[in-house]
Write a protein that binds this DNA or RNA. Structure first.
Lengths: 135, 135
DNA sequence: CTTGACCTTCCCGCCATGGGAACCCCCATC
DNA sequence: GATGGGGGTTCCCATGGCGGGAAGGTCAAG
């Protein structure tokens, strides 16, 4: 049994977040006589699981479902796969959206002199003049 | 002079957000005798500017600087361009991070049967078994 | 004069995380 | 046995960018 600090060091999850995960019901450590949270190896494994899932960008609500599936020996891998692929789609949609922003902004910036003069197609676009160079 | 609802309709920014932008000092509408906010065309132009900048993913603090540059007739386009290109870099970094997550998760999912059986490399990875198929 | 559509301010929620205050606990050292 | 420091505990606040909603004021049309 370890303290929260030890569990944090062992799992790579900050003590702050470990308490948070407990508050939202992802983990339920025991309590020592002095009131300190007491973590077993299995708890640390859960924390590592959570961290890995977070590293892949899963929202905590999905992490909760993944944890449930992980613990369920009768799970179907199809269900896990569905959660994963849904998340892949969400990630790719978000990435595509960001790349689209980057591309149009980069395009605008390419047409900006970038010198001491005030003329700037970027500001023109933001103002809503619907871009000069499109004409 | 228009009310906040009219300004919202004209600018495409919700009344809620218009008040928020005012609270953080991006816009300063006048007040009518009855206490209602009163927006001129110039205010609506500011709101549209904000919306366009937000559509390109600029954080509000950067929008604030862009607005200042927009209003400054002696601005240098170089400064605008720098803000823009910094933001492009941030967007691309974020997009790359998301795509990396999507790619590794997709890879894991490809090796998941996705049937009624419980075996699942996705869960194995999350557990931290460091992926079987890498061997 | 009521109704309803608008306006006002203020508070709370999301998501995931960090910072910090105020207090308790335990161990080592003097 | 006192003290100090490095834990732990709870609780509140902040981030960013928005939404929901309550409680109340205002105005125009019926």
């Amino acid at each position: 049994m370890m303290t929260i600090g030890e569990a944090a060091a062992a799992s790579g999850v900050s003590a702050k977040m470990i308490r948070h995960y407990e508050a939202i019901g992802l983990i339920r450590p025991q309590r020592a006589a002095n009131g300190y949270r007491a973590y077993a190896e299995a708890d640390v494994a859960v924390l590592r699981f959570i961290r890995h899932a977070r590293d892949l960008g899963f929202p905590l609500e999905t992490v909760r479902r993944l944890l449930a599936l992980w613990r369920d020996r009768n799970r179907s891998s199809a269900e896990v796969k569905r959660l994963a692929l849904d998340h892949v789609a969400a990630l790719e949609a978000k990435a595509a959206s960001l790349r689209a922003m980057a591309a149009s902004l980069r395009h605008l910036a390419e047409h900006c002199h970038g010198d001491e003069r005030p003329d700037c197609p970027i500001l023109d676009e933001l103002e809503g003049l619907e871009r000069v160079e499109r004409a």
